[in-house]
């Protein structure tokens, strides 16, 4: 196991290098000269040259790349171009709100979608199954934007059940007051595709031969579903869950934007708005690292729950 983990960590290096290369090409080459943005209103040639020197843009491209690599390795991305705050500070303060929304949403969504999908798979082919599948298809066709706009308008503005937007410093206030509406809307968006996916996982398992053997042994359909099928279907469910964990860091971009939640997603959007390259780069690197680590974690968990898997 240890050898496997080491080998995977070793394999992450080229991938991380590739991400850095990609970002470098995007921001230092394609992105062009950001000095005009930073110069603001007074862009004399002197100011521009000054800025370029500060950012290290007067050096050659390979040199700039080395600086970038150094930044990544020390996890010090300098300061934000728009707020002059150290990037690390900015990110540190944003991760909390993102998780405050994303974690509860993930848990509730997982619980609901797995239960509904299991029920629907159990009665597959029946009217209930078809109605639920139809509702899911219809629900998926409406853009997340519409749900959020309409939800915010009706539930918060018109009916006043929830605050329209906002965030506080206290975790309790956030969870009680500010999280419910975005959580609800996020659920509405994510439940439908999840139910469909999990349902298909369950149904596929039910078509395997060992289910036939279980019936031939005289087990009831409930026991077959809850014990035999679930245990096997857990594998793709857990795998898919682990794959979606890195998205927690990004936060629910749209929700954060609409509800004024100062999380990572909102930060990214602001950074792109203001062409704040250091922040964008930093967030991308962090998320890429998180994704790679979670993939490794997913494979290890996979090994724990599926006895057939042999890690090589």
């Amino acid at each position: 196991m240890l050898a496997y983990i080491l080998r995977r960590l070793w394999q992450m290096v080229p991938t991380l290098f590739g991400v850095m290369l990609l970002l470098f090409i995007l921001f230092n080459w394609v992105g062009g000269d950001p000095s005009y943005i930073l110069a603001g209103k007074s862009f004399s040639a002197e100011t521009l040259a000054n800025i370029r020197h500060q950012l290290g843009l007067d050096k050659s491209l390979p040199e700039q790349f080395l600086i970038f690599v150094q930044q990544v390795l020390t996890l010090d991305f300098g300061t934000s171009w728009s707020t002059q705050q150290p990037v690390a500070d900015i990110l540190g303060s944003r991760i909390g709100p993102s998780l405050t929304l994303a974690l509860p949403m993930l848990l509730v969504s997982l619980l609901l979608s797995v239960i509904i999908a299991a029920i629907v798979a159990y009665v597959r082919g029946s009217l209930t199954d078809r109605i639920v599948t139809l509702i899911c298809t219809l629900a998926m066709s409406v853009s997340a934007l519409v749900y959020i706009i309409a939800g915010q308008y009706w539930l918060a503005h018109k009916l006043g059940w929830f605050p329209i937007l906002g965030w506080s410093d206290s975790l309790a206030t956030n969870l009680w007051l500010y999280v419910p509406l975005p959580l609800l809307l996020g659920l509405v968006v994510s439940l439908a595709p999840d139910i469909r996916f999990y349902r298909s996982c369950f149904v596929e398992e039910m078509n395997h031969d060992y289910v036939r053997t279980a019936r031939a042994k005289g087990l009831s359909e409930q026991v077959i579903m809850l014990k035999h099928v679930m245990r096997n279907a857990l594998i793709p469910v857990v795998t898919s869950l682990m794959m979606s964990l890195p998205y927690l860091f990004l936060g629910a971009l749209l929700l954060e934007r609409f509800f004024g939640i100062p999380g990572m997603g909102n930060e990214v959007l602001n950074a792109v708005d203001r062409s704040d390259f250091p922040v964008i780069k930093a967030i991308t690197i962090y998320v890429a690292l998180a994704t790679m680590l979670f993939n490794l974690l997913a494979d290890i968990v996979y090994k724990l729950i599926d006895p057939r898997v042999q890690l090589k």
Binding site: D209, Y210, A216, G218, N232, D306, P307
Partner: peptide, 21 residues
């Protein structure tokens, strides 16, 4: 009746056994 009075074995034992138990 199944499993107690009438029992059955199938052609492909690998896929007929539950792989996780």
């Amino acid at each position: 009746l199944r499993g107690r009075d009438i029992a059955m074995i199938f052609q492909d034992p690998m896929s007929s056994l539950n792989p996780v138990f």
